[in-house]
Measured scan of single mutants.
Amino acid sequence: NQESVVAAQLIPINTALTLVMMTTRVVSPTGIPAEDIPRLISMQVNQVVPMGTTLMPDMVKGYA
């Protein structure tokens, strides 16, 4: 089963992602794949992401 990127903390809107903000977990439905974490660093979220929420492609500016 593929791991997806999950918020390790509350991420406010327009925050640039850092490694410490993200963790990985096997979730359903699947979100952004864990191997894309290096690509996500410094990208901004376009909404508030509560802790434990799976990051979906449409939540990250410039990802999709």
Rank of each mutant, 00 (worst) to 15 (best):
5 V>K: 00
28 S>T: 14
33 P>K: 07
53 T>C: 12
42 S>Q: 09
1 N>A: 15
53 T>H: 09
54 T>F: 02
34 A>K: 09
64 A>K: 13
13 I>Q: 12
60 V>R: 01
50 P>I: 04
35 E>M: 11
12 P>D: 06
33 P>L: 06
12 P>K: 05
23 T>P: 00
16 A>H: 05
18 T>M: 03
20 V>A: 07
37 I>L: 08
28 S>C: 14
51 M>T: 04
19 L>E: 06
7 A>F: 02
36 D>Y: 15
35 E>S: 13
48 V>H: 12
43 M>S: 07
17 L>M: 08
47 Q>P: 02
50 P>N: 12
46 N>S: 15
16 A>M: 15
47 Q>C: 07
21 M>K: 03
8 A>C: 06
24 T>L: 10
51 M>S: 06
52 G>D: 13
32 I>M: 03
18 T>L: 04
61 K>W: 11
10 L>A: 08
53 T>P: 01
28 S>K: 05
4 S>G: 04
10 L>Q: 09
46 N>Q: 15
39 R>V: 06
55 L>Q: 01
51 M>R: 11
22 M>P: 00
16 A>W: 07
37 I>K: 14
23 T>I: 13
37 I>R: 12
15 T>R: 05
22 M>L: 14
9 Q>C: 05
43 M>P: 00
44 Q>G: 04
54 T>H: 02
64 A>Y: 03
43 M>Y: 13
47 Q>S: 08
63 Y>D: 03
35 E>Y: 06
45 V>S: 09
31 G>T: 02
2 Q>H: 06
27 V>C: 04
14 N>A: 06
55 L>D: 00
19 L>Y: 14
46 N>C: 11
53 T>G: 12
58 D>Y: 14
25 R>G: 15
53 T>V: 12
45 V>A: 06
39 R>C: 13
42 S>C: 07
18 T>S: 08
58 D>A: 15
38 P>S: 07
46 N>M: 07
43 M>R: 11
11 I>C: 02
3 E>I: 06
37 I>F: 05
46 N>K: 15
6 V>M: 05
55 L>V: 08
9 Q>F: 06
9 Q>A: 06
53 T>L: 13
62 G>L: 12
25 R>E: 07
63 Y>L: 07
59 M>C: 06
58 D>W: 14
46 N>E: 09
62 G>Y: 08
28 S>V: 10
31 G>P: 00
10 L>F: 07
43 M>V: 08
11 I>E: 00
